[in-house]
Design a protein around this nucleic acid. Structure first.
Lengths: 208, 208
DNA sequence: CTGTCAATTGAACAAGCGTTCACCTAGGCT
DNA sequence: AGCCTAGGTGAACGCTTGTTCAATTGACAG
């Protein structure tokens, strides 16, 4: 067999990562073998080692790329405006970005324990940076007397868990479409930090 | 070697489940071998099969017992009172129960995909029953005009994700103790469903 | 038409897997 | 004193694992 036509490394490389992502998201890192990934790609197991030094690095790269893309995308947002506006922007972004990448999100939350300590530290650091962006918004809103947040750190964790949890049950053919879900979640986010002065009607009337 | 003193099945049985729970919570079901569990118990791998027919059933039993204990404990609550009171009771219960059983909770959320379809269906059914208890409270509150909840199903998922997320980052030696965390989370839960009429001060002033 | 080399095969390696089973042995019962 | 059996051993089964590597292929440059 060997090479067929054209340069394959540009083709096989991405296919390896795609197959790994799909299988690991479905069955878990430890349960997926290199031979399964290879079969999905249409190649022998040995060939995978042209694209990754080992299985661990394959996982780490999936998570690293995901987190780097997340940070790059969130960096493009303007979160410097009024806290309420920044919170809306962040929440909308989080929902869309995560629903678009359900597999990568799932892996990044479930397979942390399969990383070596160094790799884990790197991913955890990126995640903390991301969470800090949200906490900063909450702090600004609290300082301005706009948000009623007992503790910004806990509110950050609560909001992220609530928003990310979406990816675990969302189905394309579900009762509500993505726009509706986004609207409803945004209303809940607003309400969770609202100080009551804003009024309920305002928080629930989410413009699209 | 063989038996040492007294009847051991009453001792070894629980030790097997405890060791399995600890190791699976830490490394994941697929990554833990029967030999590792046996070593932790202080026994040879073959002896485990006196206490479980196979590895899959060992996992299922851990999850089943956890979910059954959850349902039994939640059934003992009185959730028939005013919606706000019932919600408080439920939230407090959820936090306490889950923080007390971090390992079992972690397993029940992470290892669902390692269950056979029949076993999965059973666990999923118990979970749905649990979630329905919360949704019923939200529906009652909404019908009574007390809660501002755009969609009770989504609010249920959001609240459960938010509350359960707690177990993923809570540490005994953290900045806040459990009572404080419970109080703050309860305030956030109230605020998320509050209709603004109740007033912010009331929602944040959580009695212990 | 030939030589080069990127891309891949397929076999091999030692290690570990879940599970089974013939055997053993210490303790309680008669 | 002697048997019975619960509770456990330790070796073995066939299979899979991650990883390596010499050999081979096909596409392309000169």
């Amino acid at each position: 067999m060997a090479r067929k036509t054209g340069s394959h490394s540009d083709i096989t490389g991405p296919k390896v990562r795609a197959a790994a992502q799909q299988l690991i998201a479905r069955d878990g890192f430890a349960a997926v073998s290199m031979r399964q990934i290879a079969r999905e790609v249409g190649v022998q197991a040995g060939a995978l080692y042209l694209y990754t030094p080992d299985k661990q690095t394959l996982l780490f790269d999936l998570m690293r790329v995901h987190m780097e893309e997340l940070m790059e995308a969130v960096s493009a947002l303007d979160l410097s405006g009024p806290p309420q506006e920044a919170l809306d922007t962040f929440a909308r972004f989080h929902i869309t970005f995560h629903l678009d990448r359900a597999e990568a999100v799932f892996i990044s939350y479930m397979e942390l324990r399969n990383l070596t300590p160094e790799n884990f530290a790197h991913i955890a650091d990126l995640r903390l940076q991301y969470e800090t962006l949200l906490e900063t918004i909450l702090k600004r809103g609290k300082a301005a007397g706009l948000f009623a947040v007992p503790d910004t750190k806990l509110a950050t964790m609560a909001l992220i868990a609530m928003l990310t949890g979406l990816t675990t049950w969302y189905r394309d053919d579900g009762r509500l479409d993505r726009a509706e879900i986004e609207r409803i979640y945004l209303a809940m986010v607003r309400q969770m930090v609202s100080d009551g002065q804003t009024g309920r009607a305002e928080a629930l009337a989410v413009p699209l």
